[in-house]
């Protein structure tokens, strides 16, 4: 557990979470959520839990992003107001 790497990753995670909530383009928000999941996987490898890390990279960053993109392609892309 290296404190400087941990702090940098946590800072990026908070910034990306705020961006994913505030963006009005839903496709950009979903791609940012994938980046968020991948950074979370990096944090978990860095916090000594490699099994959770690779499960999150496969399931969180992969499958969830695919589901959300599929839903947006079947509904609408832009958030109103």
């Amino acid at each position: 557990m290296i404190v400087s790497i941990d702090l940098i990753l946590l800072f990026f995670v908070v910034v990306i979470a705020i961006a994913a909530i505030t963006l009005r383009d839903l496709l950009s928000a979903v791609i940012l959520l994938g980046a968020y999941s991948f950074l979370m996987a990096l944090i978990w490898v860095e916090l000594q839990s490699v099994d959770v890390g690779f499960t999150e990279a496969a399931v969180g960053a992969g499958a969830t992003t695919a589901f959300l993109v599929a839903t947006i392609s079947r509904t609408v892309r832009w958030e109103k107001k």
Binding site: A17, A20, I21, L26, A29, V30, L33, Y36, S37, T64, L68, T71, I72, T75, E79, K80, K81
Partner: peptide
């Protein structure tokens, strides 16, 4: 207000 935004918030 958007339902997909709510799901993104749930994930976070």
């Amino acid at each position: 207000d958007n339902l997909i935004k709510k799901i993104i918030g749930l994930n976070i």
